[in-house]
Simulated scan of single mutants.
Amino acid sequence: MATSTKTRVAVNGYGVIGKRVAEAVTRQDDMILAGVCDVTTDWRLHIAAERGYRLFGATPDSAAAMRTAGLAIRGGLDDLLAVSDIIVDCTPKKIAAQNITTYRRQGVKFILQGGEKHEVTGHSFVAEANFASAVGRDATRVVSCNTTSMVRTLTALKQAGLLRKARGTLLRRATDPWESHLGGIMNTLVPEPNIPSHQGPDAQSVDPELDVVTMAVKVPETLGHLHYWSVELTRPVGKDDILDAFRTSSRIALIRMDSGLSALNAVKEWIADLGRPHGDLYEVALWEDMLTVQGNELFYAYMVDNQAIVIPETIDAIRALTGMEKNASASIEKTNKALGIGISPTGRGAGGNAHL
């Protein structure tokens, strides 16, 4: 554990998720950013240096290249681990699994992201669903953006005693916005070849009791993901009962089409106007006026910001693994406050109580 009252957090991989995790760590009053590690020398690392982040090279070659590029490097990955209590690995898919030998050798707890397999850590994490089971563990995996959104919404229904089974269709963004000039798709749709798609079984790695099946298709846009869900309820209820269940989650924002938030780009513009860093939507943005209940069937849709939704989960996972906080609600409240989750344009509490 930390030698001071603050936990020392390292970030390995300073890309789309890594830079957001690093910034979120600096906003917590019980954490300190020990440093960031990467292999690149591009603009991202220069901005990190300007922010005063301690920089480390992931390999000897990358450290040398970073020095040549004018970056002040404090050492390698082992040097970073030596001054850290926990590391959040945000490296590209499959790279993180190769790093865990180093983490275990150094005796540092670690968090992986959803691109890795559940079996690598033996535990997958969503704060509102299974925080307690992560407390004190050596490692966990914060599940993907889509899986995080699924578990949040389905857990709210489950905890209200309303969920029997769920079937969802995911319209997935083609690539990250900043990489759209390098790849992605244009003028086509690409179905994921397997039903169920991988998100359903992934959600069950967090909560094996979920009866959930997903289908997915990749679409030519980069703003975020769009989900459509059909849920069989345990009993016939009214729409207000469903909304009350969703309002129990501080990380579900109920939005309205009739307020102008009728498309993904409008939601992104709304979040940017809130002043969020990078225009990040940490919540699931769920359309309450579209939501429909017919007897014991529920239909709803929501938006997922693939770059942002896992950031608060990662902060909560840090607290759980290190034992800084053993109570899920306390950690979630602390993270929400630090990241501005639950602040509406009117200044009233948003989160699960938003009516936009």
Rank of each mutant, 00 (worst) to 15 (best):
G70H: 07
G76T: 11
L77F: 11
D42Y: 08
T41E: 08
T41Y: 00
R105Y: 09
L112V: 08
I86S: 01
V25P: 11
T59P: 05
D61W: 08
A63H: 08
F56V: 06
G107M: 09
V25W: 09
V108H: 08
V108L: 09
F56H: 02
E50S: 08
R20T: 12
L71P: 01
W43P: 11
T26Y: 00
I86R: 05
I47R: 14
M66A: 12
V88A: 11
C90P: 00
T68K: 15
L45F: 03
A69I: 08
L71N: 05
D29K: 14
P92I: 07
L80T: 00
T68V: 15
G52S: 06
D89F: 05
D79M: 04
T26E: 06
K19V: 06
D85Q: 05
A34P: 02
R104S: 12
L55W: 11
I32M: 11
I87F: 06
C37N: 10
D38N: 15
A96D: 07
Q106P: 05
A34V: 02
L80H: 00
V39W: 02
S84H: 00
Y53L: 12
A48D: 12
T68I: 15
V108W: 10
L45A: 06
R20A: 10
T59V: 07
T91K: 01
T40H: 10
F110N: 02
M31K: 13
A48M: 13
P92M: 07
D29S: 14
A65R: 13
T101H: 09
A63W: 07
R67Q: 13
Q113I: 14
R74A: 15
I100M: 00
K93W: 08
D89M: 01
R105K: 14
D85W: 06
V88Y: 01
Q98C: 13
E50Y: 01
V108S: 11
V39N: 06
A72D: 15
L33R: 01
C90N: 13
R51V: 02
K93H: 04
V83W: 02
H46Q: 15
A69R: 09
D61S: 13
K109F: 06
T26G: 03
L80S: 02
R105F: 10
A58V: 11
A58G: 14
L33S: 08
L71C: 06
C90D: 07
V21A: 12
I73R: 00
P60W: 13
P92V: 05
E50F: 00
S62Q: 09
G57E: 01
L45E: 04
A72P: 10
P60Y: 15
P92T: 02
F110S: 04
K19E: 03
V25M: 07
I86N: 04
I111M: 13
N99C: 08
I100Q: 00
I86P: 01
V88I: 11
A69L: 09
R74Y: 08
I100L: 03
Y103V: 06
L45W: 02
T101I: 09
A96R: 07
N99T: 05
A82N: 14
F110I: 05
D78L: 06
T59K: 07
L77D: 10
A69H: 04
N99W: 00
A72S: 14
L33T: 05
M66H: 04
G75E: 03
I87G: 04
F110P: 00
A82M: 13
